[in-house]
């Protein structure tokens, strides 16, 4: 009996247009149509209105009213709200069309955007260097080579199957991107031999660091004037 009385009270309140406090808290005004700019290209901007349909709000007085069917008065009010939102959407679309026309005129007047500055030749060389170095490092892993390292280097001779071996001390390293070179010195049969190798060359199959001699110079050219035993390796 009490539930029926409460339902009747809520119906009369809805008809009179006075919403209860908890119904006011739940009620939201329909949002205004927003203009979304979707840039298909630099020249043309297609502007479309995206109206959000306002969900039909029914003032609810009690949980028991949910279970029952909505009354005809509440339905009529909801239809009126929906009609008003449709009218607002149509007005928004008209405004959007006007705005699109104005923006197209402005874009025609504006000069085209400036082109990107050209890539310099030095930058291209740097990019290519990085690419070649990455490809070379995929094939073989290079150790950290420093002057003073005693290395064993295996290289492929042209028209030869077996790898030739060269062992010596690094007396200089010249960093030049993909053409980074090391100069290796060794005494062979009492004669000093210095060979400069490009370390990223595909002919060089393996570089192995045997040990490191403690040095305090970046270039060990003084070894030419030292005794042969400083450059002799078994």
């Amino acid at each position: 009996m009490a539930a029926a009385a409460a339902a009747a009270a809520s119906a009369t309140a809805a008809i009179s247009g006075a919403l209860l406090p908890h119904a006011v808290a739940c009620h939201r005004l329909p949002p205004r149509p927003q203009l979304l700019a979707v840039s298909s290209s630099f020249r043309r901007l297609s502007l479309t209105a995206s109206p959000r349909r306002a969900s039909r709000l029914v003032p609810r007085a009690d949980a028991s009213a949910e279970a029952g069917e909505p009354e005809p008065a509440a339905e009529a009010e909801a239809e009126a709200v929906a009609a008003s939102t449709d009218a607002e959407v149509e007005e928004g679309e008209a405004e959007a069309a006007v705005a699109v026309a104005e923006e197209e005129q402005e874009e025609e007047d504006e000069p085209p955007p400036p082109s990107k500055p050209p890539v310099k030749f030095g930058e291209i060389i740097g990019i290519l260097n990085k690419q070649f170095i990455e490809e070379a490092e995929k094939v073989k892993t290079l150790p950290d080579l420093r002057p003073g390292d005693i290395i064993e280097l295996r290289m492929q001779r042209p028209n030869k199957r077996r790898l030739s071996l060269f062992k010596g001390i690094i007396i200089a390293k010249h960093k030049s991107g993909v053409h980074t070179t090391i100069r290796v010195r060794r005494i062979i049969a009492g004669v000093g031999v210095e060979i400069t190798f490009p370390i990223y060359s595909p002919r060089i199959k393996e570089i192995k660091v045997i040990r490191h001699k403690k040095v305090r110079r970046a270039k060990l050219y003084y070894l030419k004037h030292k005794l042969p035993r400083f450059s002799t390796f078994k």
Binding site: V193, E194, I195
Partner: peptide, 21 residues
Amino acid sequence: VRAAMKRGRNDGSEIQFDDNA
């Protein structure tokens, strides 16, 4: 057969000796 001046090779390496022979 040996020269103190650098001599380039086809594979990009260079060779030099300590004496001229």
